Amino acid sequence: MAATPDTVHWRGVHHLALVTADMDATVRFWHGVLDARLVATLALPAFRHYFFDIGEGSTIAFFEYTDQSIDSFAKPAGVPYAKAAQFDHLSMHLPDEDALLRLRDRLKEHGCEVTDVIDHGFLRSIYFSDPNGIAMEASWWTLDPTGRPADHSDGRLFADPDPVPAVRELRDEGRLRHTVATRLVDGVIEDLRREGITLER
């Protein structure tokens, strides 16, 4: 049942925006290991922004900032950490421009600050915040790259003019030459050991 008579027609998460200090390794892991296909890239002088298909119009997107040092860390899930900086913003998925405009107007009617519609080429978005200060976005795909074969040479979707080596491999060879390995966070292993569970590394 809708929360209000004039409901917002959410379609799930458009993209969850995270932060990486190594976009090439991120492509090799998300596309090559997790099989979450790289479906779009953006690049500005200040950052790269790459999108990975996780189904039904939803993506995980990573920022890699230019000439900006990022403190990396690893922590077990669900454990608070003051420097948890990988999260950037959450974008919710809407079906079309009309839904985006209606949500913008609804936010204004409720006294919430919201941007005008921003055209990113293959997606259009508005930006606002939740009461916790979480950066929020609502978006719709003007050219939906999910749920179909990716053409890594399509400049409409792969707009980074100087992509990381992994993207050049996908574009030129149709595959990644190698992927990356990861390790469990020590805190997770310690928690499992307390429960009598051991893992082979």
Rank of each mutant, 00 (worst) to 15 (best):
L38K: 13
R168I: 14
K83N: 13
L107W: 02
A82S: 02
A159L: 15
H14F: 05
F47N: 02
V39T: 03
L101V: 13
L100S: 12
A138H: 05
E195A: 15
V117C: 12
I197C: 10
V185S: 06
E97Y: 09
V19P: 09
D144M: 05
W10E: 14
D105L: 04
S58W: 02
D24S: 14
G111E: 03
Y81V: 03
A3W: 05
A99N: 13
I197V: 14
F87G: 01
D130W: 04
I189A: 01
S69D: 12
A61N: 02
F62H: 00
F87C: 00
D144R: 09
D96G: 14
R175W: 14
D116L: 06
A21K: 07
E195S: 13
R175M: 05
D116M: 07
V79S: 09
R48W: 06
V180N: 10
S125I: 06
A181T: 11
H31K: 09
I126A: 11
V79L: 08
T179S: 12
E137N: 06
T179M: 12
P45Y: 12
I70T: 14
R28D: 05
E169A: 13
R194W: 05
H93P: 01
P95H: 09
K108N: 13
D160E: 10
L16N: 11
R193Y: 11
P145D: 11
F128E: 06
L16E: 07
